[in-house]
């Protein structure tokens, strides 16, 4: 098992490096001179060269990359152009908000997806299955930023039941008060993974029920409840893997939802970095989110064989 974990970790290293190369190239993609914000328009060539040397921009790109990588590894992501604060501290202020939102949304998606998927898988072709499948395909197809707006219109504007934006300003707020702010964004974020989990669990359950061993269990006289246990055992690992990968997506894809709800997480940070063309902040946030995604995939890879011994530890 330890060998398997090590192997997976080693596999993740080149992926993480490749991710860092792409993040580094983002700056090269950006149009305009990166020094334009620092230098006055009438700066002499000597000043330009001096500043270039100071920022290391006179070196070859490869060298610049390794210097940048070295800084990143030691936790130096540069400074935000807009606020002047270190990028890393901006990100660490925001990431907790995004994590808690992604966690709550994943939990909702898992509960809804598992129950609907089970129901549909057990009753393939029935009206129950049709309703569950319609819900699932809507969840996958809905533009979630629009769903967020609709939810705000219904629950904040019309019913005045839940806050429309932000995470609350009261630092001493209890958990319930905090949750009130999280409900709408989390539901919005959960729609798509709930649809995906429903669809995969439905297919899995239907497939499992059609397998010979279920017929054998029935022939041996097991009750439906006991058989249900076997079905769960066979489909839960995949559902967990799906939700694990989805959590990575939720963190990264939350930029739209966080913008709708002004939720002070990494998505909103990314949005403000884009609006103010704050490239160091953009680069740093994307790197952290992408590495989180790589890490989530790695964790799923490592945990899956623990839940599902059928998967070989290669």
């Amino acid at each position: 098992m330890l060998g398997y974990i090590l192997k997976r970790l080693l596999h993740a290293v080149p992926v993480a490096l490749a991710v860092s190369v792409i993040c580094f190239s983002l700056v090269q993609l950006a149009p305009g001179d990166p020094l334009a914000v620092v230098l006055p328009a009438d700066a002499s060539q000597e000043t330009v060269d001096a500043v270039k040397a100071q920022y290391g921009l006179d070196r070859p790109l490869v060298v610049q990359y390794f210097i940048w990588l070295g800084n990143v590894v030691t936790g130096d992501f540069g400074k935000s152009i807009a606020t002047g604060r270190p990028v890393l501290s901006e990100i660490s202020n925001a990431i907790g908000y995004s994590l808690s939102l992604a966690f709550l949304a994943s939990l909702m998606a898992l509960i809804v997806g598992l129950s609907l998927g089970m129901l549909a898988g057990y009753t393939i072709g029935s009206p129950v299955d049709k309703v569950a499948s319609a819900f699932a395909i809507s969840g996958v197809s809905i533009p979630h930023y629009w769903l967020g707006i609709v939810l705000v219109v219904i629950f904040s504007v019309q019913l005045n039941a839940l806050p429309a934006m932000g995470a609350g300003t009261n630092p001493d707020a209890g958990i319930l008060e905090r949750l009130r702010f999280m409900i709408l964004p989390a539901v919005t974020l959960a729609a798509m993974p709930a649809g995906i989990v429903t669809r995969s669990v439905r297919a899995l359950v239907a497939e499992t029920l059609a397998r010979d061993f279920v017929t054998a269990l029935r022939a041996k006289g097991l009750t439906e409840v006991q058989i249900f246990g076997h079905v769960v055992k066979n489909s839960a690992p995949t559902a967990l893997a799906v939700i694990g990968v989805q959590m990575g997506y939720l963190m990264a894809g939350s930029i739209l939802v966080e913008t709708v709800f002004s939720w002070p997480g990494t998505g909103l940070l990314l949005n403000s970095a884009i609006l103010t063309r704050d490239i160091p902040l953009l680069q740093g946030t994307i790197l952290v989110l992408a590495l989180f995604f790589v890490a989530m995939n790695l964790i799923v890879d490592i945990l899956q064989p623990l839940f599902d011994p059928r998967i070989k530890r290669i």
Binding site: I22, L26, Y249, A252, G253, I255, L282, L289, A290
Partner: peptide
């Protein structure tokens, strides 16, 4: 593929 699709699109 190591990038979630939305993030990659937003990044580029």
């Amino acid at each position: 593929f190591a990038f979630p699709s939305v993030l990659l699109a937003v990044a580029i």
